[in-house]
Write a protein that binds this DNA or RNA. Structure first.
Lengths: 199, 199
DNA sequence: TACCTTTGTCTAACGGTGTTAAATTATTTT
DNA sequence: AAAATAATTTAACACCGTTAGACAAAGGTA
């Protein structure tokens, strides 16, 4: 007998086990260490079994990405209830987004293509030159009354974040128009420059 | 005979060839397709030879990263000369940074750990929900006179860029303090919200 | 019960990866 | 010409994603 539903449930369980085993491995050893054989080991099967549940490794990544987005949406939904004021809700949602990225780092990484690609890369003047050039210029336009290291750092990272963020978004997704990119970039740059000049 | 210098020069050439062969492959087929054997093919050697010049594959990535930073610094230096006004120089440098990212995309990707990780991921409500939630809230706080799709899009991407950028920077490098992160984030969020409300 | 079919699972293999040790060839030195 | 050194390759290891085929367990049917 072994009712059909029961069998289906077991299959669904295995599918779920594959996903959570994957996530476990990734949390422990990073995305680069995730392999079909390692997943199989963790669920006490051999590798080919996984192909009964996912057409290939990419399909697993896709599913985890989906799970990530759902979890993120949930967290944001939750955050929205913390406030009734729309601006407050917006802020709360962005904070939820931020917290999600650090609570579920591995999910965030696969969702948005963030890699810790290359090695340690110990501090080195060549690597820091672009940063220093920008930093010095920011210092230069900062009113003397505000010219502390902490202030300039903050402005530098604000700058860098928005520019790098916009670039990353464009390189991984390709859904923004050339025109809007230029506009966002220009707005951000002039906006931050003004905020520096005027405190 | 074959003077020592000559030999050294040939060795230096080979080292350089390895790097440019790598970059060629990456430009044509992406980082995931870069392999020691493919590099060797391109310079008419076998794979183990590469280990005479680089201790491993990561060392090649490291060197390319370094080249990227040097090139970026050069472009920024160049841009700085376009203006005499400090604010104008700062803006020009950020534009140079932006242009570098799209002119030398592959270099930028390895420098900052940007990956096109997972597959096509066709449009799907689950993926867009976080975006939609934020978008709707932005719409809500936008003064009616400004409430066009283009305007809201622009504000949304500004928001997303700075938040995602700051997160990415934190996930790949780890050089900012918890305290400053919070401050940059909070400043950016309230700043953008104000800019939305006041046009 | 005996047979057949279906299902689940594994073994073995292919071609690929980074990397290393040993064998081989070429070059230089004596 | 012989010996020593350098340059290069071959062969192998352990891993990877993926697929085809073998095998065993279970189910249905007569």
């Amino acid at each position: 007998m072994a009712s059909k539903d029961r069998i289906l449930k077991v299959k669904e369980d295995t599918r779920c086990n594959i996903l959570s085993a994957s996530l476990e491995i990734v949390k422990e050893e990073g995305w680069s260490a995730l392999s079909m054989r390692k997943i199989a080991d963790k669920i006490d099967y051999t590798a080919p079994i996984i192909y009964e549940y996912f057409s290939n490794k990419d399909a697993i990544l896709k599913e985890l990405t989906l799970m990530g987005f759902k979890k993120l949406a949930g967290k944001m939904e939750e955050a929205k209830t913390l406030s009734t004021d729309p601006a407050g809700q917006l802020e709360a949602m962005w904070l939820a987004y931020w917290n999600f990225a650090f609570a579920d780092t591995e999910l965030y990484k696969v969702m948005y293509g963030v890699e810790v690609n290359c090695c340690s890369m110990d501090v080195c003047p060549d690597l820091q030159k672009p940063m220093n050039m920008l930093w010095d210029k920011i210092e230069e336009i900062t009113p003397e009354a505000l010219r502390t290291e902490e202030y300039i750092d903050r402005k530098y990272y604000t700058f860098w974040s928005v520019v790098h963020g916009l670039i990353s978004i464009n390189l991984t997704r390709q859904l923004t128009s050339e025109e809007m990119n230029r506009q966002v970039l220009r707005d951000a740059i002039t906006g931050i420059i003004n905020s520096i000049k005027n405190g």
